[in-house]
Write a protein that binds this DNA or RNA. Structure first.
Lengths: 320, 320
DNA sequence: ATAAATATGTCAACCGGTTGACATATTTAT
DNA sequence: ATAAATATGTCAACCGGTTGACATATTTAT
């Protein structure tokens, strides 16, 4: 009743262990009839080779660890979907880690992944100061996160996106544009959106102010800025909340208030197609991330940390 | 430069392999100073025990395979998030499989998971006729999918939800209510929503018709039913598309057309809070699925297939 | 003072595969 | 006719841990 093993297959097929192994791995000489016999035996026994045993010997698991805050989010959900797809296409499996933004969980996951001998890690969940990233010599790629000096990053052109969003609102006639950003302490390239906003406003000699997503930042923003007529939200979910709050306060979008979001994930665009947003090339980012990781895993040249920045795109909706 | 192994730790700490193993697994007698020495050596070497080797011996991987169409969807994204969380809390890791609705991929994933010796599988991606489910004796739980006779299913009360949605539209005064459903061939408990719709309409002696999500079903629906004034969509994404199309055709929601969706995932409710919907208890479903799986893994009694059905809830928005 | 508990060690077998060395028998090519 | 290629086998070592049996030395409890 135990799982059949290679020895069981060999016995049933009337051949040696080595022969079965040869059939399995397609190496050495094997006659057609023998190969057939082995296959029949495997089928009859419902045999699946034990990858754990194989992994142990070849010292390679073909598993990639993927650490992000959560799959329960249009951006990450889509990114992870594509990451998994690209990995799968190359014969790699994905161990999913939802850090939920908690440093202790991220740390625990990193340790777990090392114990599990994953071949590499793709992460975008960094809470500063996780030294494992520093120490690690394992292949790692960061998505939209600075993890450690030697770890390459894939991100989209956040600065350009920030400029595009801000200039777009200005072009549409907004005079009092505010920005909402995630926590500055996260040290992500996404902070460039904020820099872009602030520098663009400065250049245009317009007043600017950034709110961070803490507590009741949305109602505070409205209360403190009665003349507000434009909001650049650093992601689409925030933009949706801003629109909701504006409506609650009797403001019409886009007449009284123009709102532009950021990310442009598939699901967001399905559910809220009217939202103007800066669309990140999520699929391309996933592809590049997997590509960079594979380069490291297969030790393809590149001793240089080559960060990759992909272009963004303004999607004109009806909220601006 | 190779990864340190248990023998390296033993040598550095000046103890035997057995002693290190005892420290690692907390068995047998170990003195405090010895334990300390071993820990120091592990830290100095940056040693992580090789779980692959351990798994091979104990014949258990603490990995659960999770197969769903995609993480790029509010419902599955949330479900998978919670599944991963509950697994993690119990010391299990998740191998993520996005089948993309393709039978060949699902089949390949199932085989891969068996080779990888996962302790169990949670799946909700079934394209009929995957015999591996039938043959398998491995712990499996289905979420909203009939996989095989002996595989327990977790789902929400789809029939009740269908009745609630339909009666709600009737209560709001709709006379010509249509339903949009996924493919009937999928044999999912979600088909009960359709049954509920059709039976409720029949009971009320009202005309009914169900469209399946193929080709340009939405415009066809509008074209073929000029008097349409209510739509019960079997998920929120479809509902969003219906609303968009209605607006395009100059119909106002909810004045001219009332629309109710299904699922009520977190992200949908953030992006489209005005949508009336039937909310599934996604987190609870995840919890039950993991619970049922653990029962199987740990061979807790229950030879009976106990399917679990959880209650749904109507969320009144502004689209009905 | 002595038995029991504690602390550590050595040794060998095992988990389920892979691989290289070597042997031998049968085909195939020149 | 003979060398090379093909087909299969046996054997042993290995991947990096775990575990049980057994031995011995030191503490602790009665």
């Amino acid at each position: 009743m135990d799982k059949p093993k290679l020895a069981d297959v060999a016995k049933r097929a009337g051949v040696s262990l080595t022969t079965v192994s040869r059939v399995l791995n397609n190496r050495g000489y094997i006659g057609d009839k023998t190969r057939e016999k082995v296959h029949v035996a495997m089928k009859e026994l419902n045999y699946y080779p034990n990858e754990i045993a194989r992994s142990l010997f070849i010292r390679k698991t073909y598993i990639v660890g993927v650490i992000f805050p959560t799959t329960n989010n249009p951006f990450y959900g889509q990114l992870i979907y594509h990451l998994e797809n690209f990995c799968e296409a190359l014969g790699y499996k994905v161990l999913l880690c939802n850090s939920g933004g908690r440093e202790d969980k991220e740390r625990a996951y990193l340790e777990m992944l090392q114990r599990h001998q994953v071949d590499g890690i793709i992460a975008g969940a960094h809470n500063r100061g996780i030294d494992i990233y520093q120490r690690s010599t394992m292949p790692i790629v960061g998505v939209d996160r600075y993890l450690a000096g030697h770890i390459p990053i894939v991100s989209s052109d956040n600065y350009r996106g920030g400029v595009m969003a801000t200039e777009h609102l200005i072009d549409r006639g907004c005079k009092h544009i505010l920005h909402i950003n995630g926590q500055l302490s996260l040290e992500t390239p996404a902070n460039l959106r904020r820099n872009a906003y602030e520098e663009t406003m400065k250049r245009k000699k317009m007043p600017y102010k950034t709110y961070e997503t803490v507590d009741d930042y949305i109602s505070r923003m409205f209360d403190e800025n009665p003349k507000i007529d434009g909001v650049f939200a650093s992601d689409d979910l925030i933009a949706a909340c801003v629109i909701r709050e504006a409506n609650k306060r009797g403001m019409n979008v886009p007449e009284d208030l123009k709102v532009i979001g950021y990310d442009g994930a598939d699901m967001t665009r399905m559910l809220l197609p009217e939202l103007t947003t800066i669309k990140q090339p999520i699929k391309d980012m996933a592809e590049e991330a997997v590509h960079l990781l594979m380069n490291q895993i297969n030790e393809v040249e590149e001793p240089t940390v080559d960060n990759i920045t992909l272009p963004v795109q303004l999607i004109q909706g009806k909220t601006t």
